[in-house]
Design a binder for these strands. Sequence first.
DNA 1: ATTATATCCTGATCGC
DNA 2: TGCGATCAGGATATAA
Length: 273
Amino acid sequence: MPELPEVETVARQLAPLLAGRRIKRVEVLDAKLDAGALGQVQGWTVAEVFRHGKQVALKLARTRGKPAEQFLLVHLRMTGRLIWTDSTAPPEPRHLRVRFVLDRGSLLFYDPRRFGLLTLKECLTDDSSIGLDPMTPSFTRQALGGLLAGSRQPLKTWLLRQDQLVGIGNIYASEILFAARLHPQRPAGALSADECARLHRCVQAVLKLAVKHCGTTFSDFQDAHGVTGRFQRLLQVYGREGQLCKTCGGEIVRLVQQQRSTFYCPVCQPAGQ
DNA sequence: ATTATATCCTGATCGC
DNA sequence: TGCGATCAGGATATAA
């Protein structure tokens, strides 16, 4: 369940390892990942590595011939992992889906459940379907209010929508709503100005804190070196059904919304306004 | 137009 | 101890 903080962590760690590296060879071990298209990044050089929504983006530059650029987007989905290794020995084959052999080291894409996706794009700014990134200056209280307006979806469901805000998944949706003291079933478009301001502040605060702690490792997430995140110790509600609320001592409740678990504290997050 | 549901996929866990 | 059933959820396609 890599969400914004986990993807940000991976991108930041890969950046210095991959910058300037040339892709010598691509081995696609899962036919589902479209071998033909991926093979064409061979010979290209990694210019930048950054996060794009929930995806890790590699900006590639062609160093020989006519100058050109393209972007390799890696969506980790549920169980995808990008691991960098300096070893020339054959990598662990279990769940290995793609191997990029570089002029120094290799970038390995592991994905047990095969939900992950690799795509190539000429340009990243051309898709209008992607939502606002809450880590950018454009994410203002007013912008959030504008997006929420008119929606009758429950807040928790709305926070998962990548066409509105990018980067929030099932773990941080619960954590953000707890921090904002908002009930997950409240209609998204019905918040008061004060509640909207709280939600805005908590989206930023929770994601920022999680990034600082290199994300959450709940089951599968590991960073570029195969190390786990530290945010799980700071989780207030996610995965804590039946345990005591760290704020009020009440019991954390699990709720199912859209076939997904939501965790909240009924005392700290009352149903009324 | 908006919102809800089924689907993909496999490892871990659960109950008998 | 073994084994089938269930659960986990990001995003898309399809249905309502």
